[in-house]
């Protein structure tokens, strides 16, 4: 059973998650089909910036986050931004979109100058997230858990971060049991995605390098 306290925590995170989305006008521009390689690159860069801003606004509303040391807040966001963005993109990608939209989006990513060997694991990840059929609560909590990972570089007060992450993991675990009573491995599968995200984060650093070379 989910306690009242856990309910409050979950609702606060869900509310923040749903309130902070990429602005519609920015998202819409992704679907305009005429663009040069340079325009594509600039738009994707702008999207990424917008995603980081949205991510920070969401994170500020995670109960307890702003009570952490300021430099630790930055270290956590810096260490998790790429992973949180991949999670959010996966959800956008798996959402039911009007016919053709997914293709336009996929085309853009493929034309971004990222080499195929990096794109493949990314789309595989999107697919594996889609297969989980997460509820909005699970998505929001998983993102919060990702951001509040204590072992990011430059985080000083690991214990303080752990104290925030632990209750979120507990609620997430309970939710998984309630939502997926016939899948005892569901929670473990969610955690497995976090490992996959770590690899993508590592890939991302290489993508940046290859982009610079290009």
């Amino acid at each position: 059973e989910i306690t009242k306290e856990q309910q409050v925590l979950m609702q606060a995170i869900l509310k923040a998650y749903e309130r902070h989305q990429i602005p519609q006008d920015v998202a819409k521009r992704l679907l305009h089909d005429q663009y040069s390689a340079e325009e594509n690159f600039l738009l994707l860069t702008e999207m990424a910036t917008s995603q980081v801003q949205v991510l920070v606004e969401f994170t500020k509303n995670i109960p307890g986050f702003l009570s952490l040391d300021h430099e630790d807040q930055i270290a956590l966001l810096k260490g998790s931004a790429v992973e949180a963005m991949f999670l959010r993109s996966a959800q956008v990608f798996n959402r039911k979109t009007p016919a053709g939209h997914t293709e336009v989006l996929e085309e853009r990513i493929r034309k971004s100058g990222i080499s195929e060997e990096f794109i493949k694991p990314m789309f595989n990840f999107y697919k594996s997230i889609g297969e989980l059929l997460m509820s909005p609560e699970e998505q929001a909590l998983l993102t919060a858990v990702t951001i509040l990972t204590p072992d990011r570089p430059y985080v000083k007060d690991h214990a303080a971060v752990e104290r925030l992450q632990e209750p979120m993991l507990e609620v997430l675990k309970k939710l998984c049991t309630l939502h997926h009573p016939h899948e005892p491995q569901y929670f473990a599968r969610l955690l497995g995605r976090l490992t996959e995200l770590r690899s993508l984060n590592h890939y991302h650093a290489e993508i940046i390098t290859s982009w610079r070379v290009n």
Partner: peptide
């Protein structure tokens, strides 16, 4: 790396500011 600095700048600004205002 410069890319990380860019990310950090965006984070610092967003942490200080308030998009909702």
């Amino acid at each position: 790396p410069a890319s990380n600095l860019g990310l950090e700048d965006i984070i610092r600004k967003a942490l200080m500011g308030n998009l909702e205002e």
